Amino acid sequence: MSYLPLVGLPADTHESHGFLFHSIGDKYVRAVAEVALCTPVMIPSMIDALEIDSLLDHFDGIVMTGAVSNVHPPHYGEQPSAAHEPYDHARDATTLKLIERVLARAMPLFCICRGFQELNVVMGGTLETELQDVEGRIDHRAPKHEDVEVRYAPAHAINIRPGGQLEKILGKRETMVNSIHRQGIKRLAKGLAVEATAPDGIIEAVSVRDARSFAIGTQWHPEYKALNNPDSVKLFTAFGNAVRAYAKTRGAPARAIA
């Protein structure tokens, strides 16, 4: 029998046959369970029926997942257009508030892809859409291929900031990452520090300045087959260790998992 802390993951929403569904990709919950060694729990994107602070009282860490949808542009001061679609308004309403409250609690926070962009928006930054159409940018989209192994294969190198949080975790200043996004950070929020960049200058990783716990975001997807990727193992292990430390500090009751 072991005792595992709880990690919340917000859901994406989509409609099918007239019904709204909440869901999370298996790769996220599996990385939390198998690498971070925590218990993953879905947080439904239904802010109208949730009391965020009461909800967070039950968690020891949060993973903001990637998604097909993009953050709605009015949240960072721009007008929406077809280029920004698709959207998930229910997720926006929930996650932007959730990140704000998680940061206020100094709860461990790991933000991936859309979650990485959400973090920047919550802290006052902006986003740039359709990077592949911008002069000087590489194409950050996944290859158009049916094989998921091809879509999530390493796509380009990133340069890791010397002395930063990411270098401390990975123990190196360059690595290869996958690339599965159309948007990126345009104006970095003042409260964030750049941890890594792509060859074209796009920000690939950030950390929250003066954070009292793990508070890192990656534009790439370290959750994909995390157990098989040494960098992913280091990232999710560091997150899991921070989650356990947070649970101990706040005196969270042990949860028995047979």
Results as ranks from 00 to 15, higher is better:
I99M: 09
M123L: 15
V63D: 10
I52N: 04
A31H: 02
L127F: 06
A104L: 01
D48L: 12
S23A: 15
E34L: 05
R105P: 01
E85W: 01
T65R: 10
M107F: 13
F110L: 15
C38T: 09
V71E: 01
K97A: 05
H72Y: 11
Y28S: 08
R105K: 14
I112L: 11
S69V: 05
V68C: 07
H58W: 04
V102L: 07
E78S: 08
S69Y: 06
V35G: 01
K27L: 11
L20D: 13
V35E: 02
T94C: 07
V121D: 09
L37K: 14
D26P: 11
E85V: 00
I43Y: 11
E78N: 05
L127G: 04
G115N: 11
T39N: 10
C38D: 06
S45F: 10
T94Q: 07
P40C: 14
H84P: 00
E118N: 11
Y87F: 15
S69T: 08
V41D: 09
H84S: 09
D53V: 04
V29W: 13
L119V: 07
E78G: 02
L50E: 06
A67N: 12
P86S: 03
R91H: 02
L37T: 06
K97N: 04
A67T: 11
F116S: 05
G115D: 11
F59Y: 10
K27T: 14
G77H: 01
A104E: 06
L119N: 02
R91F: 03
S81Y: 04
S23G: 14
M64R: 13
A31L: 00
Y28Q: 10
L127R: 05
M46V: 15
L55E: 04
A82R: 05
M123I: 06
Y87C: 07
S69C: 04
Y28D: 03
H58G: 04
T95Q: 15
D92Q: 10
L103P: 01
S54L: 08
D48Y: 08
E34Q: 08
D88M: 07
L55I: 03
C111Q: 11
